[in-house]
Amino acid sequence: MRKKELKLVVTFYTTADAMAMEKACKEQKAPGRLIPVPRAISAGCGLAWCAGLDARDALRQLMDRMDIEEQDIHECML
């Protein structure tokens, strides 16, 4: 397994939100990738956006600009 480090994890209410995030990040060349929601955040299923901690402001601005609704923004060891 990979060595764990603190990452930013954005969760969403729906898969459609996660897809909107992925598309917007690709288009805007914002950092990160989709991951399955980590157990530390939720014991359910679903997709989350994972990026480095330093991407917080850029992602926040992107989500505001693109009208993407997140459920929460976490920091966790991944």
Binding site: Y13, T14, T15, A43, G44, G46
Partner: peptide, 16 residues
């Protein structure tokens, strides 16, 4: 729904 598995209710957010 693919999300919120342990929620007894179906998610209320569109389009899910």
């Amino acid at each position: 729904s693919g999300v919120q598995t342990y929620n007894k209710s179906h998610p209320s957010e569109m389009p899910t």
